[in-house]
Simulated assay, not measured.
Amino acid sequence: MEISSKTPAIVTGGASGLGLATAKAIAATGAKVAIFDMKEDEGEKVAKELGGTFCKVNVTSEEEVDAAFAKAREAHGQERILVNCAGIGNAIKTASRDKNDGSIKHYPLSAFDFVIQVNLVGTFRCIAKSAAGMMTLDPINDDGERGAIVNTASVAAEDGQMGQAAYSASKGGVVGMTLPIARDLMKEGIRVNTILPGIFNTPLMNAAPPQVKDALAASVPFPKRLGLPEEYAKLAMVMLENTYFNGEDVRLDGAIRMAPR
């Protein structure tokens, strides 16, 4: 897909981190970008800087997602690009013993479900609604392409650490649905790919103590550093622009394989 000023795009989680870097990369082509995020102040600021539109949205809410798509399309037209970066994580063991009294507790199912709802169901919700909209568009090239979607999973989908059962399950679900969705949409000319990032220097990671960041960087085979959001954005752009890139799940991790803890 050739991205230009005539290529409306939506980036979920676009107010910070991987989503922000991707929104900037897309906007640099002249495309209008709608930022879907819960962070209103940051989102409004980013949208203003990029000449786009901010939509406050919680991807677990059907009503908010519908309203956000409506607002984005009213501002820029039906999107041809969707990049899903919205997500959360937590660290809770499936079952564990209290360090003080030895009592046994299990993972709160409500907490498990919340991670699944945001990372997996929220991603699918945005994919389904965006794809339905893309199907109304005319093809833009000789291959019959109508749109392209990029999702964000995690290396935890393949080698999750202790306490990451919910997170790994949610991201594994994103990986698992990539090819079936690409097949669902193949006759409509809509491509679907997924990136599995490793340890990236996002705002959340910036809050960690320097020694923690240094230890994580040292665990990466090469290059021995945390990933840069701009490097994620570069891969996302390749997936969007290369029409033969479809149905793939690609690790972007400096060859790291996560240890149990």
Rank of each mutant, 00 (worst) to 15 (best):
I3D: 00
K6N: 14
T7D: 10
I10L: 04
G13H: 01
G13T: 05
L18F: 01
L20I: 02
I26N: 00
G30S: 11
G30L: 05
G30N: 10
V33A: 05
V33D: 00
D37H: 09
M38C: 14
K39F: 09
E40S: 11
F54W: 06
K56E: 11
V57E: 03
E62W: 15
V65K: 04
A70Y: 11
A75E: 12
H76W: 11
R80P: 03
C85V: 02
G87P: 04
G87N: 06
G89I: 08
N90P: 09
T94L: 14
R97Q: 13
D98M: 12
N100I: 11
G102D: 11
L109M: 12
I116W: 06
Q117M: 14
L120F: 13
A131D: 11
A131V: 09
A131Y: 09
M135Y: 10
D138Y: 09
I149F: 02
V150Q: 02
V150R: 00
T152C: 09
S154Q: 07
E158A: 14
G160R: 08
Q164F: 13
A165Y: 11
A166Y: 05
G176L: 09
T178E: 04
P180R: 07
R183I: 12
I195F: 01
L196G: 01
G198E: 02
P203V: 02
M205Q: 05
A207R: 15
P209W: 08
K213I: 05
A217H: 07
S219L: 13
P221I: 09
P221S: 09
L226C: 03
G227E: 01
A233C: 00
A236Q: 01
A236W: 00
L240K: 01
L240H: 00
N242C: 08
F245E: 00
N246E: 10
D249K: 12
L252D: 01
G254C: 08
R261E: 15
